[in-house]
């Protein structure tokens, strides 16, 4: 469903607060395409969906969808991503509110920790006489 994933590595963070818009959104596309079958003139914005599968676990990214506003995005997420009992809680986030790391900067971003095995507990030998390690 996602063909509009931001290609730009760093997207200016828009307000992360999701304001539910109750009414007043443009639904012209809906009514038009319902009879003519033509694509929507103003496409719905893209939302990223996070689902928590059960109490105590964290929300996990499940996918994305299109919706006219946050209220409908939550409902669409329920309809698309929890059809097989996958979740007990859903978050939806405007895709443009997500800043992501630059895939081209993998080297400078993620290779530094490699070889630094002293950052792992297994690097150290256990002192004699220390219990419960």
């Amino acid at each position: 469903m996602s063909n509009e994933t931001p290609t730009s590595p760093v997207v200016e963070p828009v307000s992360p607060v999701v304001e539910p818009v109750e009414t007043g959104v443009s639904t012209s596309s809906t009514t038009d395409s319902s009879t003519t079958g033509t694509p929507a003139e103003t496409p719905w914005s893209l939302w990223e969906v996070f689902v928590r599968s059960s109490r105590g676990l964290s929300h996990v990214h499940a996918g994305s969808l299109h919706a006219p506003d946050a209220t409908m995005a939550l409902r669409n997420a329920r309809d698309l991503y929890t059809r097989r009992n996958e979740g007990v809680s859903i978050w939806v986030v405007p895709a443009e509110a997500i800043s992501s790391s630059d895939p081209d900067s993998k080297g400078s971003f993620f290779e530094s920790p490699q070889g630094k095995d002293y950052r792992h507990a297994t690097y150290y030998t256990k002192s004699e006489g220390v219990k419960h390690l």
Partner: peptide, 13 residues
């Protein structure tokens, strides 16, 4: 939800 949006959307909706 859809009644609210269609009624409060455009003149056409």
């Amino acid at each position: 939800q859809w009644v609210l949006r269609l009624a409060g959307g455009t003149e056409e909706s």
